[in-house]
Design a protein around this nucleic acid. Structure first.
Lengths: 419, 419
DNA sequence: AGCACTTCGTCTGACGGTTGAACGATGGGT
DNA sequence: ACCCATCGTTCAACCGTCAGACGAAGTGCT
């Protein structure tokens, strides 16, 4: 059980108030009270705590129509900075955000297939962090934490990449390797969890508590929230929706199995569909997934029948996968994101969701809403930054708590702060 | 947010302590403290509350090896009774349980396809309740609640069967119809939720917090628990795993779609596999699913090759479905139950779980455990009884709570207690 | 200016909870 | 008779939320 003493009540209230401030951008005390369901005295207490810590500030007062003016509260961006790192198969993207999670600087370093040993990745992260801090003019001491997203299964407590099939990593003690190079609080998780977190804080999660976040890119996966909480599963492996079977004895997937959804609707799967249909198609750029999918999008815009056939086929498989997801979890919203969605979503999302109706138990389907992710920027590095932010916020309450470690939302593997 | 005041803390503590008593059967105060993680004074307070209400009692004292003897606490069975009703497609089973959820009497009334209008079902429930109370000698005034499980999607708050494809029901105000006939607190939900609840209280849920409960019968479905809490979804429609697509453009399913898992591994689906393989098979009893599946089990025991082929095929599809489920939620345990599992589980469970490995992302698969349900009796009527029990327990705390309705675990639609 | 009114925010006391530490209860062993 | 182990209770310290009273800070009207 999670609730233990009145301290947990305060923790929940504090989180709720702060979450509302992030979701709303800025708010007065009384609007926070009504949004969070807490009483005004409670909100006032929590707010004064947060003000004391410098996490939020009163930015202005505004007219209230004949009464005492409202004081608008907002996150104090200068209080500190978080870094979010998205390690993908082809690049390492690093972003630095202020405490209000507004991006301050971004860096992207290429990662080719020949250079994806843990050491290569760590080099790029170190360089990326150096670059963004330099560009943004953020002193290292002001960084309150770094979140890193690495594909595959992650052991968060140990900071270990248990299994990353695309890098052929097994049991890589990632944080242990990174920690000496970046002596700051570090948080490790995977892109599915990160992008779900981003939607939960700034996207569809602002009004829905049960949601599914589908990511379509080179890899395919999903993240789930139930009751506003990220579903992790026993081994933090929940969300491997992309490796559910859509065709029995179908195409081989790089995970080692056959017929996985990812093998059909991931970028390489879409390329393969194109290749099988028109082997020498001019849309095909064998050396670049992005270029091919971009070409496909252009062809769709021009009404090319081959592109339309490929899209229909992709939508067909995606519809099956989405149907399964909706059947099982009955979310309020399904958010579609990822770079393939960004390029093809205009055609793919309506087609796939329409077809999903044929694969969903009717009553569940009618209550679900489909959305294309409205987040700007990279949701994965943002989500990774949110992990760091959560760790920082959890750490703030520590001083008053008897056993803080037991309650921290994110588990930090930190090096001692002083040398 | 769920946590609001210190009352919620007490509610959680009370629930935790009581849940432990149910799971352990009986326990001393100090063992409850260590099992629940609460301090001994807190446990003592909660226990004395429960003793005051008569919900539990001190059953005996036992030697503690040279110290003050332990007082063993157990649920007081005579405090009241709950009724659980399982409305299936072919019968209405009614059980009465004492407060310790031990069965006292059971009744089963046939329900044939010609008589499944709401009125027919309600007649049988009324008769069933009368029968079990009579057999067990339980006066109606001692019944603290009745839980009813009806297949399909349920609106719990309204007590409405929103959609039950097998009965062709739509928007049937079930509780409203039942309430005048059985003026007691009534709780409505579906069999997937009920059997998951039963596992959560008395089965695999006693040690695992994240679990999936698969039910194989005429219909096929699953229930999920995340962090010890039943996943309901936005419209209480989570768990329709049986209607996820395993074969694109496959067999028609009675839900109206094609290629649903249920169409392959539900009893009618298994029968169809047998029929397609050997049209005039002696194992086939066209008029009875149960008889056919029983015959299949006997043939498997005898090493019949046709039966083995049918089983392999069924296991194949089931493996796909289980793989999807494990991929998405990464549960600690997958429990398989339902009457088809009871008859064929000995062969089907090992075969399907072995095949599931081919449809699961490797790291998730290795941490999951598969179990055949170890519950005795009908888990659905038991689960329905648990809904009633939860409602009763939630109601006990009412007198001290400002706004009890907001917090009740199950939502009761009751008629006024007095005439 | 004075006053009524409106709205935002704070203060206070009542109430409900958990918990460590001291203590009482209850047995066995010597 | 005395010590010791173990179970359970009492008590005071501490930490929460919240309703209601009250203070603060404006507008609009006279």
């Amino acid at each position: 059980m999670g609730i233990r003493s009145s301290r947990d009540v305060r923790r929940a209230s504090r989180f709720e108030v702060l979450h509302q401030i992030y979701a709303l951008g800025s708010a007065s005390r009384s609007s926070l009270a009504s949004a969070s369901g807490l009483s005004t005295p409670t909100v006032a207490t929590v707010v004064s705590e947060l003000l004391d810590w410098g996490v939020i500030g009163e930015v202005c007062t505004e007219d209230s129509g004949g009464g005492r003016p409202r004081a608008r509260l907002a996150v104090n961006p200068a209080r500190g900075f978080v870094v979010g790192v998205d390690v993908s198969e082809t690049y390492v993207q690093t972003d630095v955000f202020d405490l209000a999670l507004q991006p301050r600087a971004s860096d992207r370093q290429a990662l080719d297939t020949g250079h994806n040993h843990p050491g290569d990745v760590i080099d790029r992260i170190e360089r990326g962090v150096g670059a963004v801090l330099g560009t943004a003019g953020v002193p290292r001491a002001d960084v309150v934490g770094i979140g890193v997203s690495v594909p595959g299964r992650i052991d968060r407590a140990g900071g270990v990449s248990v299994f990353a099939p695309n890098f052929a990593w097994r049991q890589v003690p990632f944080i242990e390797l990174l920690s000496p190079r970046l002596p700051l609080p570090l948080y490790l998780d995977n892109p599915l969890k990160a992008s779900t977190m981003a939607e939960l804080w700034f996207g569809a999660g602002r009004d829905a508590r049960d949601l599914a976040v589908v990511t379509l890119g080179t890899g395919v996966g999903a993240g789930f929230a139930v009751g506003g909480t990220l579903v992790r599963g026993t081994g933090n492996a929940a969300g491997e929706w992309g490796h559910s079977t859509v065709v029995i004895d179908g195409r081989p997937c790089r995970c080692g199995n056959r017929g996985c959804l990812e093998a059909y609707v991931g970028a390489p799967g879409i390329m393969r569909q194109l290749r099988e249909r028109v082997p020498g198609s001019p849309l095909l750029r064998p050396d670049s997934q992005t270029a091919t999918i971009t070409a496909l999008a252009e062809a769709l815009a021009a009404g090319d029948p081959v592109a339309e056939a490929v899209l229909r086929q992709t939508a067909r498989y995606l519809g099956v996968g989405i149907g399964t997801l909706v059947n099982m979890l009955d979310p309020a919203v399904v958010v579609l994101g990822g770079w393939v969605t960004a390029l093809l979503g205009r055609w793919l999302v309506p087609a796939a969701t329409a077809l999903a109706a044929r694969h969903t138990f009717a009553p569940a389907f009618h209550s679900v809403r489909f959305e294309t992710s409205a987040l700007t920027g990279n949701p994965i590095s943002l989500g990774a930054g949110i992990f760091a932010l959560e760790g920082f916020l959890a750490g703030l309450g520590v001083s008053t708590s008897r056993d803080p470690a037991r309650h921290t939302a994110a588990i930090a593997t930190t090096t001692p702060p002083a040398v």
